Simulated assay, not measured.
Amino acid sequence: MKTLVIVTHPSIETSAINKRWVEELKKHPEKYTVHELSKVYPDGNIDVDKEQKLVESHGDLVLQFPVYWFNCPPLLKKWFDDVLVYGWAYGSNGGDKLKNRKVALAVSAGIIKEDYSENGRYHYTLEQILVPFETTFRYCNADYRSPFAFYGKENEPGGNQEEENGLGSIQLEKSAQDYLDFVDNL
């Protein structure tokens, strides 16, 4: 079965990493379905039945997003709240749609890796910050996998966007290939 990649980015057109990852995934429609929540639901009104059927019709599930205030973008949080409901994602009344399904996160951190450490700027690792996602999927009996992360520099005013993110074209291309390898080897 194909892998479903749910992408949530509030401004993917201005993204370097997430945009490039989506472009690379879309080169392989036989392997991946790229589902961009912000494009499908610009008004934020999620069609729960459609989303549940989409998840059910795929194998592995990857949620791709930028770390947004040390969490996910609001539309993805709404997707969690609306779609992962009792009786479907968890619970004694047929809530097994994620059971044993491989699930992973693919995130762009926007901050250098050293800042995500006990002695770093934010005092927590990225894995620690993402624990609520892991806990959610474990609660749903999914087979949660370690996240794929791209660390970069915070934006500074002025200059070239790619340079501001600390990205050269070689690094950007390598991240796209590493991402595909990650998804293929869940």
Rank of each mutant, 00 (worst) to 15 (best):
N71F: 13
K97Y: 07
A142S: 12
T3H: 07
V131F: 10
R138G: 05
Y32G: 05
L75S: 00
K26R: 14
Y151P: 11
N45Q: 07
N93T: 13
K99Q: 08
N100R: 07
F150V: 15
Q128H: 04
M1Y: 11
T135Y: 07
E24G: 02
R145C: 11
K39N: 07
H9V: 01
E24F: 08
A142W: 06
Y68D: 03
L98I: 12
K26W: 02
H123M: 08
Y122V: 15
V85E: 08
L61Q: 08
K50T: 04
Y124T: 00
V183K: 02
E134R: 14
E127Y: 00
D178H: 08
K26T: 13
L167S: 09
E156C: 10
L167V: 13
Y41L: 02
S175T: 14
K27D: 03
V40C: 00
K78H: 07
Q128E: 14
K31W: 01
L180T: 03
L76T: 06
V5S: 07
G166L: 11
G166C: 08
I17E: 06
E24Q: 13
N71V: 12
L54H: 04
D81G: 00
G158H: 05
N155T: 12
P10M: 03
D115C: 01
Y68Q: 09
V67S: 06
H35K: 10
T135K: 12
E173P: 00
S15N: 03
H58V: 15
V103N: 04
T14P: 04
Y68T: 12
Y68W: 11
Q161V: 15
A16I: 15
F148C: 06
Y90M: 10
V107C: 10
A104T: 02
K153R: 12
F182L: 05
E173H: 01
D178K: 11
N185Q: 04
G44N: 07
D143M: 12
D178C: 09
W69I: 11
T125A: 02
P73K: 01
Y122E: 01
K97M: 09
P157M: 14
H123R: 10
E127Q: 01
A176Y: 04
K31A: 02
F70R: 06
E162I: 15
S146F: 09
A142C: 10
G166H: 08
P10T: 03
S117R: 00
S175H: 09
L98A: 09
E164H: 08
Q64L: 02
R138D: 07
C140K: 08
L76S: 02
N18H: 10
N18K: 05
V103E: 06
Y151T: 10
D115I: 00
Y116M: 00
P147W: 09
D82S: 12
